Simulated scan of single mutants.
Amino acid sequence: MKLLVFGASGAVGQAVLQQALADPRITAVIAPTRRALPSHAKLLNPLLDFAQLPRDASWWAADGLICALGTTRKIAGSPAGFVAVDRDLVLQVATQARQAGVPYLALNSSLGASLQGNLYLRTKAEAEAGVRALGFPRLRIVRPALIQAERTPPRRAEAVGLFVCRLFGPLIPHRYRPVQPAQIAAALLDGLFTAGPGEVIVESDQL
């Protein structure tokens, strides 16, 4: 089984990569990035300019795509830059994969994704709607709460949220408690082997 992973340099993507490379059912992992990843016998790591995705690369043809792309407004430099990654790049990657015949997509989204939400939640919801419209035979959308991970550079709003969660601990409903990247990665990968036809949404309290 061949797996395509986008966003492999982020917290969730790194966890996906680690689990996929360790899984004997997956024979090859293709993880395009801007900077080189540590080498592995099962890993193909094309170095890309994400502003110009190659349309004719043979590695688009895979058994599944896991998309863990994401940024912040601060890193992206503007709201428009954030949307360009978390919605537009996600849809470009998903479109290319679908055109190559990839039958399974797992998308890392967000708890509370909604077209009526703030910029972050609305962008996530628009990405969900966009990949849904591409007609993947099997689609899994994972909506985690705050992700408990070391960020470089740190994400201030996320750090504040994690501090509040640690402070109040068990008083916080399970749905809103922080989750580990490894939990999200496992949910994204699980559908590659177990999901039947159609769409599955995995909420944070299911992780």
Rank of each mutant, 00 (worst) to 15 (best):
K2L: 01
L3K: 10
L3G: 01
V5G: 06
S9F: 06
A11M: 06
G13R: 06
L17R: 09
L17G: 07
Q18N: 00
Q18T: 13
Q19E: 11
L21N: 05
P24C: 12
I26P: 06
T27N: 15
A28Q: 15
A28D: 10
T33V: 07
R35C: 03
L37C: 07
P38N: 13
S39V: 10
H40I: 05
L43A: 06
L43V: 13
L44D: 11
N45H: 09
P46I: 08
P46Q: 08
L47Y: 06
F50Q: 12
A51L: 09
A57D: 04
A57W: 08
A61Y: 05
G64W: 08
G64M: 04
G70M: 03
R73K: 15
R73G: 02
R73Q: 14
I75F: 05
A76Q: 06
P79L: 04
L89N: 08
Q92L: 05
R98Y: 04
V102I: 02
P103K: 07
L105V: 07
S110A: 12
S110P: 08
G112A: 00
L115F: 00
L119R: 02
T123C: 01
G130H: 05
V131F: 09
A133H: 08
A133S: 12
A133G: 11
G135W: 14
R140D: 00
R143I: 09
A145H: 01
A145V: 06
R151G: 10
T152D: 10
R155K: 13
R156K: 10
G161N: 03
V164P: 00
L167F: 11
F168A: 09
G169M: 08
L171D: 10
P178V: 07
I184L: 11
A187D: 05
A187S: 12
L189I: 15
L192Y: 10
L192D: 04
E199T: 11
E199S: 02
V200S: 06
E203K: 05
S204H: 09
Q206G: 09
